[in-house]
């Protein structure tokens, strides 16, 4: 019973996600698709932050790498599937290249190197007009998929949903595999993990590079979703927001990135009346949340569920509450 409940919930969520666009207007479907794309990038950040215990301030830059790779390749006539894979692969390789020197040094250096890298990528996108169109941006065509017309927003949503599901499953498998358990060992106690034969540096580097690849995949979907890309969404501020949304959702929990992405995508919609103040409200929210519940919204929900008195296990709630915290 206990094992079936999450599966049932998962199935319900899956069904709800599949039928969701049927009741929505074009804009609603667009927001929902944007949420999925954001979630993919956030999953990558979660692997880096929540599982490998590092900080990345470059996810928007990897999103940009993926978006421009896909835009340039599909523009040159390469099929979308290939462009999508190339985007992830390129992000993975770049991740290895910048992660390798940074992880040699000490904790928090990756944060500074990724910070510098984000600025660098943004400069390249802005300055190399012959390649990226600079601040004028470039148009991206939506791919076709055999007989299916992806220009239709509902079809494109289902297409993105399928890819999100596949990538979620892949990440779930990575985290559950012996290989992924090494990540958890790392986060819990790096010193002990190392003494048990886990090559800490290699695993951290791989976690970082895979996280970057997820950023690249998300970018490959982002470009055809919005149809027009310019340097703005790949600057430093969006990279910071990616890190914040994962922590707000719940770093280190599987659902965390989805919840965090939902907050990050929907909050500006709900707070439209507040105009520019939304970032101020969001920042305050993050600080309060970090002070009282650093395990994020998912952690908060877990804590509330554990605190709810159950008739059969009246004396139990105290212990799980502590665990969830």
């Amino acid at each position: 019973m206990k094992a079936r409940l999450p599966l049932l919930a998962l199935a319900l969520v899956a069904v709800a996600l599949v039928v969701a666009p049927l009741g929505l207007q074009r804009y609603g479907t667009y927001i929902l698709t944007l949420w999925l794309v954001t979630s993919i990038a956030a999953m990558g950040v979660n692997l880096i932050v929540g599982y490998a215990g590092q900080e990345t301030l470059a996810q928007a830059a990897f999103l940009g790498i993926g978006a421009y790779t896909t835009a340039l390749l599909t523009g040159a006539g390469v099929p979308f599937g290939l462009a999508f894979l190339a985007s992830g692969a390129l992000a993975f390789c770049v991740g290895i290249l910048i992660g390798f020197p940074a992880l040699r040094v000490r904790k928090h250096y990756l944060a500074f190197v990724t910070l510098a890298f984000t600025v660098l990528v943004w400069l390249v996108i802005r300055n190399e007009q012959w390649l990226t169109g600079g601040v004028m941006g470039m148009n991206v065509r939506r791919p076709g998929l055999g007989e299916i017309n992806l220009r239709n927003h509902q079809n494109f949503y289902w297409f993105v949903l399928a890819i999100t599901a596949a990538l979620s499953f892949a990440l779930w498998w990575i985290v559950r595999s012996p290989w992924g358990r090494a990540f958890t060992a790392l986060r819990e106690n790096a010193l002990r993990a190392e003494s048990l034969g886990v090559d800490v540096r290699l695993y951290t580097l791989l976690a970082f590079a895979i996280g970057c690849a997820y950023g690249g995949f998300a970018g490959a979907l982002f470009a055809p979703l919005v149809g027009f890309i310019d340097p703005a969404p790949f600057a430093l501020a969006p990279s910071l927001l990616f890190l914040l949304m994962v922590v707000v959702g719940g770093a280190g929990s599987f659902a965390g990135p989805f919840v965090g992405a939902a907050v990050a995508v929907l909050l500006p919609e709900w707070l439209r009346f507040a105009q520019g103040h939304y970032l101020i409200i969001y920042a305050l929210l993050v600080i309060v949340m970090m002070a009282f519940c650093p395990s994020g919204i998912v952690g908060l929900v877990r804590r509330l569920v554990a605190l709810r008195p159950k008739p059969s296990t009246a004396d139990a709630p105290a212990a799980p509450a502590k665990e969830a915290a």
Partner: peptide, 9 residues
């Protein structure tokens, strides 16, 4: 980590 996140916020 929460402190780092908060300074970013």
């Amino acid at each position: 980590l929460p402190l780092v996140i908060s300074t970013i916020a």
